[in-house]
């Protein structure tokens, strides 16, 4: 437990010391605001709603989250520090979890920094149609769970290679495929009538449920299991140095 916390601190500290983190945060905030204000129907709808922001979250996360995740393992492999780290008295899973949580903290920070958006919408909303905070809270939770899942995919991808670009592309591609099968049009293409089952595996499908304001335990359990599954793959991949 202590080791997980120490690794977490080092990882999160590493993000805060790196200029690329701030570029990431700025891009995320600018793109998020642009999506709401220019791409969505926010102004035309005349209602204090944030659907126009959250509906684009999966697409933003699709690129931005693998960008956070890509360095997590690939950099250690490239510079050889993996050997330094893994010969300290730690267990492999402690390192995997600590590193994941460090990146997750950055994701949480990014989401927290979007808070001025709902605050302003609420502030300037018509008194007769105020912002409903319930769905907003739900949508934040959904975004966090979706992002955490993509992050687990991305860190696993990062553990497969020492090349950060490959890690990034791999993370994007796997996440994109999983999001895509959540669309009914795509799910229909799956043969043998398995479409519904495949779609149920899509993080996008569960995100849509939550951001519509339906908080179902099944969706939360889905995300947690997906995260655990990819972290498990990550641990196996880190252990694989021992079998090779």
């Amino acid at each position: 437990m202590k080791n997980i916390w120490r690794i977490f601190k080092k990882e999160f500290g590493g993000y805060l010391n790196s200029p690329s983190t701030y570029i990431f945060l700025i891009i995320f905030l600018i793109l998020g605001s642009c999506m709401l204000l220019y791409v969505s129907t926010f102004f035309r709808s005349g209602a204090a709603r944030l659907d126009g922001f959250f509906v684009y979250i999966p697409w933003l996360f699709l690129f931005l989250v693998p960008a956070i995740a890509m360095r997590v393992w690939a950099e250690e492999k490239k510079t050889g520090t993996e050997e330094l780290l893994m010969t300290l008295p730690v267990r492999d899973y402690e390192v995997v979890i600590g590193k994941y949580l460090g990146a997750l903290a950055l994701l949480i920070l990014a989401l927290a920094l979007t808070f001025p958006i709902p605050w302003m919408v609420s502030h300037f909303a018509d008194e007769r149609t105020p912002l409903d905070w319930g769905p907003v809270a739900c949508a934040y939770l959904g975004s966090l769970l979706l992002g955490a899942t993509i992050l687990a995919i991305g860190t696993w991808a990062s553990s497969l290679t020492e090349n950060q670009i490959i890690a990034f592309i791999l993370g994007c591609a796997i996440s994109f495929a999983l999001i895509l099968v959540g669309f009914p049009r795509v799910a229909e293409l799956v043969p043998f009538g398995l479409g519904d089952y495949v779609a149920a595996l899509s993080p996008y499908r569960h995100f849509v449920n939550i951001y519509r304001g339906v908080l179902d335990l099944a969706d939360i359990v889905y995300y947690l299991s997906a995260i655990v599954f990819f972290l498990f793959l990550n641990i196996r991949s880190v252990e694989s140095r021992k079998w090779a």
């Binding site: 590493g14 510079t79 050889g80 520090t81 993996e82 330094l84 010969t87």
Partner: peptide
């Protein structure tokens, strides 16, 4: 370890 791998940004 060989080549003294270290965290260069620390």
């Amino acid at each position: 370890a060989e080549g003294a791998p270290l965290y260069h940004d620390m």
